[in-house]
Design a binder for these strands. Structure first.
Lengths: 234, 234
DNA sequence: ATTTTAGGATTGGTAAACCAAATTTTAAGT
DNA sequence: ACTTAAAATTTGGTTTACCAATCCTAAAAT
């Protein structure tokens, strides 16, 4: 049936078409939370696409918590109403790749909080992980090597110590975009790394001392240059 | 080869096995950013699993920005170093379903910021969307109906108006979990809804007046009860 | 020696066939 | 009539086969 491989762009278009189709179906058939969607085979026939495409689209909506597939049984509308469903799908369709500024803005917001929470909740094990990450970073910087990765792993250790799994996940999602953009824009040049050692130590100490205010403050200072840099980007 | 359908739990185990395998492979073969992974067929043979399983695992690592598949070419190690790769995979394997407290904590953090940003950046179109969501919520509450969905769509409209696509995405990820937990714990009972109308109006007004401080303040007040509720959960 | 080109091998993507669990329908038993 | 059991159908998941784009090799042309 399909005679040529689709580009990524074309594939996205097909997926959006299917997602819109599913949304319309839910509206047209007045499907309530818990109701069953037509089978993947029927959907693929109805939308005139392959079953693989349908499965991909369903997986995406499953990721955003809107559908739930049960093996050998069917795909079901999640336990959030039709209104929320429509609003969310509209937004999901509109989503595009995040820009660097948006990533950094969100990162700073998250990390001021994780630093504070880590100071409140860190265990001895958390401290150990953070210290290891700290040492790895210092060692690289001392040798004059690039240490972007070790830098971010230290920050990730703080996120883990915050005891908030959602923020930890969000940091994981953000980090790759941060790293690649850092390399692209050459953010971490010059003496920034040397200063990073002192900054990190101050943050670590505050968390170790269980001083949330100070931890947040030190993290804020650490981000000061980055903040200014990113707000002057374009 | 495979003779029975795997439970979700078993499937997760297989996926983690493959992810660990890929990590070990990258380390053992000293694969650098940009290098090509063995083909899906070879991986499935090496790990003694189906190619579908391999593809799922690769998709997951692609979501977290660690790999990148190119059609008819291969799967490549993303442009972040081995160190970050190892650290992140370790954390990804450890991730579990977020708890309600973690969701609410993150939501409040995000929304205090989106309210502030929306007051700074909202367009006339944003205002219109927010007002529509506001009206839908009010109408439901006036009729004594449950309005959890309309409530969250208003908050989502604010996130959209913040002009930060990352925070917008994160709100979308959080919302379904919030809704289901709200229903489970009966958070939105009683006169909370009536108060919600006034709260929302105050937030909207502040954003319309481009008053970021006030917008954040009103959002904070709006969350006060929710905040206390969730911190006393267990 | 270098570049070009052609053919075969490799690759991720896709379509189709197949599986067993779950569901529905049907029929048998009481 | 109602309950129970069994057979047929439907379903998402899985495996297999296939496709065209890409990559690799090496021979041919300059």
């Amino acid at each position: 049936m399909k005679l040529q491989v689709l580009t990524i762009h074309e594939n996205q278009k097909v997926q959006k078409l299917i997602i819109r189709g599913i949304r319309d179906l839910i509206n047209y058939k007045n499907l309530e939370p818990g109701d069953k969607l037509p089978s993947e085979r029927m959907l693929s026939e109805k939308f005139n696409v392959s079953r693989s495409n349908v499965r991909e689209a369903i997986q995406k909506l499953e990721f955003y918590g809107l559908l739930k597939s049960k093996p050998q049984s069917g795909t079901f509308v999640a336990n959030i109403g039709v209104t929320a469903m429509n609003g969310m799908i509209e937004d999901i369709l509109r989503l595009d790749e995040p820009d660097f500024k948006s990533l950094v803005e969100t990162r700073i917001l998250l990390e001021l909080k994780t630093a504070r929470l880590a100071a409140l909740r860190r265990t001895e094990e958390d401290l150990k992980s953070m210290e290891e990450a700290l040492q790895a970073y210092n060692k690289k910087v001392m040798n004059g090597e690039d240490a972007v990765q070790e830098d971010l792993l230290f920050h990730l250790a703080i996120a883990k110590a915050s005891g908030n799994s959602t923020m930890n996940t969000f940091m994981l999602i953000i980090i790759p975009g941060i790293i690649t953009n850092f390399q692209k824009h050459h953010v971490c040049d010059a003496g920034l790394a040397q200063r990073g050692i002192r900054d990190h130590q101050a943050i670590f100490d505050a968390i170790q001392d269980k001083n949330p205010q100070l931890a947040k403050q030190k993290m804020k200072e650490h981000f000061k240059e980055l903040y200014n840099y990113c707000y002057n980007l374009e």
